[in-house]
């Protein structure tokens, strides 16, 4: 359990803190999405939670211990964090993909290679991989740390559909015993992949479940975001009495199924 208490961050050159004082707790078994417009400090918050940046105010508790209490505790804490950077190139300092995977690994390298289909890339330099392959390699490296908390900054951006579903599948498996926290611009993906949603703006902070969002879809506009397409479609269809107001339509399949039923009913008539 990762508990965040009264936390905020302020750049030395700014007059106001980036976001309001935050209080929330992250639990195992859930994928959390951090949502907010550009520049609201999502990456900064991720860095604070992974032990890379000391907050200006407030505390982060991991197993009831303040992670910024001492350097030793901080180092220990960092070893339990898997952090996927927005630009993976920053962490590649070995000559081949195989060496990268072996560096300070804890988990089973062979298993991860198979899981992420990296077999044919092992002898390449990490710098020759495509953008998507780099992202996948980074996630594999981080998972080999067997981290308690996995944090990802845009881990599926720029990936093709295959790569995206590969990552989504592995995250679903991983979340069972761990905390996963993601920042992702593509809200259509976020809605499908994540369980809890942390909405952040410079004045407000709100934690919501998928049900909360579907009951209160204007939350996106409230935080300056454009709602994902499926939510918009659901709303429009409810407004036209095609879909029932109290049902949850989280993805395209569910919406399509109901429309299919309606079409079949009409055919039967």
């Amino acid at each position: 359990m990762l508990k965040i208490s009264n936390l905020t961050y302020q750049f030395t050159s700014h007059i106001l803190p980036l976001f309001p004082h935050l209080n929330f707790t992250l639990h195992k078994g859930e994928i959390y999405a951090l949502l907010g417009v550009n520049g609201v400090g999502k990456t900064t918050l991720l860095k604070i939670l992974s032990g890379l940046l000391k907050p200006s105010q407030g505390k982060v508790f991991w197993h009831d211990q303040n992670i910024y209490q001492s350097k030793k505790i901080l180092r220990q804490y960092r070893s339990q964090i898997g952090f996927c950077l927005q630009d993976p190139e920053h962490l590649f300092f070995k000559q081949t993909v195989a060496d990268e995977l072996k560096y300070h690994h804890v988990g089973n390298v062979a298993k991860i290679i198979k899981q992420f289909k990296l077999e044919h890339l092992l002898n390449y330099s990490p710098f020759e991989l495509s953008g998507g392959q780099k992202k996948i390699l980074q996630l594999a490296i981080m998972l080999l740390k067997k981290p308690e908390i996995l944090i990802g900054d845009e881990i599926t951006a720029g990936l093709d559909t295959k790569g995206q579903s590969l990552i989504a599948k592995n995250l679903q498996k991983y979340k069972k015993d761990h905390i996963v926290l993601l920042v992702n611009h593509d809200l259509n993906q976020v809605i499908q992949m994540c369980d809890k949603f942390l909405f952040l703006s410079s004045e407000k902070f709100q934690v919501m479940t998928l049900t909360d969002i579907l009951n209160y879809p204007t939350i996106f506009q409230k935080f300056g975001l454009i709602p994902p397409d499926t939510i918009k479609i659901g709303q429009e269809l409810i407004a036209r009495d095609i879909l029932l107001p109290d049902t949850i339509y989280s993805n395209s399949e569910k919406i399509a199924q109901i429309i299919a039923t309606l079409i079949n009913q009409k055919k039967a008539k």
């Binding site: 093709d160 559909t161 295959k162 259509n188 994902p228 397409d229 499926t230 479609i233 395209s252 399949e253 919406i255 399509a256 199924q257 429309i259 299919a260 079409i263 079949n264 055919k267």
Partner: peptide, 22 residues
């Protein structure tokens, strides 16, 4: 779209799924 590795938009996904079912 798939051949060129583009994401299928929700509107198209719904159309295709409805076609598959009906």
């Amino acid at each position: 779209l798939k051949e060129n590795q583009l994401i299928i938009p929700a509107t198209l996904a719904i159309r295709d799924y409805v076609y598959k079912l009906t």
